[in-house]
């Protein structure tokens, strides 16, 4: 074959190869994000399932702390109704806050604090909160990787072509919640 052909064939082959490899890499990065999202989902559901049990246990010792129970239940319902990531993140924050105040209330009841069942639930919920934070961290790490890839040159050419779009981070707090908490006496 005429050696001149190679001057055309080799670069074309290299470009096609680069195309395939890059496209596949982007796909796998995107799949990782979805996978990471399902991890968050698993942990959020786990917490959702633990809450009724916790409320029942606490009620047995602290019946009149109604406002705290209502707050937790409200946040729980808000979370179950959340459809997109933003409302979900917001409900998740609300629920975390409500649970915190529930545990703060429990501090006032020594017999409750010593209850075996309560201690177990507290450990479960606390570690589930941790796992939610960790899965969120893993999710955001993956989003960062993906976003970085599709925005950098020359990968952005392929990303634009196949309509890979920037993914959203799962943010921990909204701006208003970052304000210092007012303590009422």
């Amino acid at each position: 074959m005429n050696p001149l052909y190679w001057i055309i064939i080799v670069p074309v082959a290299v470009i096609i190869l680069w195309f395939v490899v890059t496209y596949n890499r982007l796909i796998s990065l995107r799949t990782r994000i979805d996978n990471a999202w399902s991890q968050i989902d698993v942990q959020l559901k786990r917490r959702y399932d633990l809450i009724p049990n916790l409320i029942e246990t606490v009620k047995g010792y602290a019946k009149h702390e109604k406002s705290v129970f209502e707050e937790v239940t409200k946040a729980r319902t808000a979370w179950s109704k959340a459809k997109d990531m933003k409302t979900m993140a917001k409900a998740d924050n609300m629920l975390s806050g409500a649970l915190k105040s529930l545990f703060a209330v429990a501090e006032n009841y020594p017999t409750l604090k010593a209850n075996e069942n309560f201690m177990q639930l507290q450990e479960e919920l606390k570690s589930t909160e941790d796992k939610i934070a960790y899965s969120r961290q893993f999710y955001n790490d993956n989003v960062m990787n993906f976003n970085q890839s599709i925005m950098s040159v020359p990968t952005n050419i392929i990303a634009n072509w196949f309509k890979f779009t920037v993914r959203e981070y799962f943010k921990t707090e909204s701006a208003e919640e970052k304000k210092p908490v007012k303590v009422k006496f």
């Binding site: 960790y134 899965s135 961290q137």
Partner: peptide, 12 residues
């Protein structure tokens, strides 16, 4: 157990 499970999630 919970500590390890949490960090396994974080590490993927």
């Amino acid at each position: 157990y919970n500590t390890v499970e949490g960090l396994s999630i974080a590490a993927g």
